[in-house]
Nucleic acid binder design. Structure first.
Length: 565
RNA sequence: CGGGGCGUGGCGCAGUCUGGUAGCGCACUUGACUGGGGGUCAAGUGGUCACAGGUUCAAAUCCUGUCGUCCCGACCA
């Protein structure tokens, strides 16, 4: 490809409304162009990268036995009414009406469509298990699209759905998909981690997320430095403390703590380490108006864990100031577990603390030297908190570290939610009709592109991993217009490298070298070959890796061999 | 959906408070010089100042409304 015939639409300045680096660089490198909030055109440079991701995904899905299909982006409302999601999905679903006043939506996901396809076309267990995938634009009307294509409304996704007669078959395909995902992300050249995930509202047995590690990631993931354990912090647990707390050493005392409303403030005021102070949160309960949740002062409530408790309403809802006052007779800053006549649930770590301080259920007062069993009945023990760095891995091997990740893939064992609601069945070996069980497997293809940039860039621009780069080699001639020697050499190189199977971008614009270097660096082409009269006089050209500190002059004759290394 | 910011050539911005000929840098076009890290000089192209009303002799500027867009939060693959 020649730059004279290929749109290089780079920007020197950063567009004002791009916040994160990948968004800025995608705009500056001319990869994408915004049409509306969360809706982008993929321009030539960007599309080449997107296609690279797609190709890897497609090859690995095919290799794992999945069959490619292409489902409609436009979906009729009836299908969503069958699954019960037309009402439930809410404003995230972009709905519209055709000329006959029939309602449709732009597909945000395709469970309904694939389930419909399967119930119409699969009849026998002999056709199972079956796994269908597509690479398709989805539309989700996010309340706040942001970060360019990272959280766009219209985005390219690979989604796959598998169908089985039983759970064992589903588990087999799930495992095969898990391996395929590892193969896919290995091939991208990105640093990623597979983590245990909360299966969320979709429910189902197992669920894993794939995260590209980057400081700007929206998710926190915990992993063990001594084993393979890794989980989204939403779900991560630690080895639970079951040991009894130390023996009481102090008497319980009521102390005045005027105007101390935060845990940090109370700890400081009482001159106690924050781990020695327990905090009590009131949330709405299922059977009682409120439930008390007790945590160590330095720990954070994990709302997902909490709302799974039978006693707690889901989704979780914190008690209002008025409800707190009614239930315990004080403000939020002075609640404590002592003497409460509402259900009290404590995190394991909070139950292991002796001689602790806590609110006295009276404004401006706290209790110190409090001990479970002696001063109050031991609360129900539960895992309520987010893990923190240094917690023991739940498998007992090593300690937890926490890093940020960008979720690029998610695999679920879905179960029969959709097949049951929509009547997707097959005959089994005994000729009996059985409801199918499903798995679903997603990859945010366009998000992978942004995540790659978050992980691989410098102050000059993008540094593509070889597998994702829009081109393999940038050919930069110096003085192309004036030097016949340069012109002839570069044309031959272009032909030879292309014949050798490289994707080459020859910069034949009438630009100064600095402009060409800056553009090739910004676009992030992994390797650059510069041809100028100066070097040719010695039979040499300049070779530089995008991320490398400096370039090297190598004999023209050795170039192809050198590139092959 | 709650809170806040911003809409002036393709991009980044000034001008708005205090109404009076629409500006700057980059980009783009042409020419000359230049030619190994976004070069210099010269001459140009391009904007009904988001939109709709209103006030006024006169509105980018003041008033009212609408829309778009970005950020924080809630929500979400």
């Amino acid at each position: 490809m020649r730059t004279s015939q290929f749109l290089i639409s780079t920007l020197k300045e950063t567009p004002a409304d791009a916040e994160i680096i990948s968004h800025q660089l995608m705009l500056r490198a001319g990869m994408i162009s915004k049409l509306a909030a969360g809706i982008y055109t993929w321009m030539p440079v960007g599309l080449r990268v997107l296609r690279k991701v797609e190709k890897i995904v497609r090859e690995e899905m095919d290799a794992a036995g999945a069959q490619e299909v292409l489902m409609p982006a436009t979906q009729p409302a009836e299908l969503w009414e069958e699954s019960g999601r037309w009402g439930k999905f809410g404003p995230l679903l972009l709905r519209f009406t055709d000329r006959h006043q029939r309602e449709f939506c732009f597909g945000p996901t395709h469970e309904e469509v694939i389930t419909d396809m399967v119930r119409r076309n699969l009849r026998s267990y002999r056709q199972l298990p079956a796994n269908f995938y597509q690479i398709q634009m989805k539309f989700r009307d996010e309340t706040r699209p942001r970060f360019g294509v990272m959280r766009a409304r219209e985005f390219l996704m690979k989604d796959a759905y598998s169908f089985h007669l039983d759970a064992e078959s589903l588990a087999e395909t799930y495992e095969r998909m898990r391996q395929a995902y590892c193969a896919i992300f290995d091939r991208t050249g990105l640093t990623y981690r597979m983590v245990e995930a909360d299966s969320g509202s979709i429910g189902g047995a197992a669920s894993h997320e794939f995260h590209v590690l980057a400081d700007s990631g929206e998710d926190a993931i915990a992993y063990s430095n001594g084993s393979d354990y890794a989980a989204n912090v939403e779900k991560a647990t630690t080895q639970l403390v079951t040991a009894n707390p130390a023996a009481p050493a102090r008497e319980m005392q009521r102390v005045s703590t005027p105007n101390q409303k935060s845990i940090g403030g109370v700890a400081k005021f009482l001159e106690l380490p924050i781990e020695q102070v327990l905090k009590t949160l009131l949330v709405k309960g299922m059977d009682t108006p409120v439930v008390a949740l007790v945590l160590r002062g330095d720990h954070e409530l994990n709302e997902i864990k909490a709302e799974k408790l039978a006693a707690v309403v889901s989704p979780i809802e914190f008690a209002s100031d008025a409800e707190i006052k009614r239930a315990v007779g004080c403000g939020a800053g002075s609640i404590g577990p002592v003497g409460l006549d509402i259900p009290v649930i404590a995190d394991h770590a909070a139950l292991a603390v002796a001689d602790f301080a806590c609110g006295a259920n009276s404004d401006g007062e706290h209790l110190t030297g409090v001990n479970w069993s002696r001063d109050l009945p031991p609360a129900e023990a539960q895992d309520l908190r987010n893990v923190v760095v240094g917690d023991l891995s739940p498998d007992g091997q090593g300690q937890l570290e926490i890093v940020r990740g960008i979720e690029v893939g998610h695999i679920f064992q879905l179960g029969d939610t959709y097949s049951e609601a929509m009547g997707a069945t097959c005959l089994d070996e005994n000729g009996k009709d059985r409801v199918l069980t499903m798995g679903c497997y997603g990859i945010g293809v366009s998000r992978v592109v942004a995540a790659a940039i978050e992980q691989h860039h410098d102050d000059r621009g993008i540094i593509w991993p070889a597998a994702l780069a829009p081109f393999d080699i940038a050919l930069v001639p110096i003085n192309l217009q004036r030097s016949k020697q340069v012109r002839e050499t570069i044309e031959k190189l272009y032909a030879d490298l292309t014949a050798a199977g490289y994707e080459v971008l020859l910069d034949d614009r009438k630009e100064r070298p600095g402009v060409m270097f800056a553009d090739m660096d910004l676009i992030g082409i992994p390797r650059r070959v510069v041809v100028g009269e100066r070097g040719l006089a010695e039979g040499k050209v300049e070779f530089k890796q995008r991320g490398a500190e400096s370039s090297e002059d190598i004999p023209l004759a050795d170039l192809i061999t050198r590139l092959a290394q």
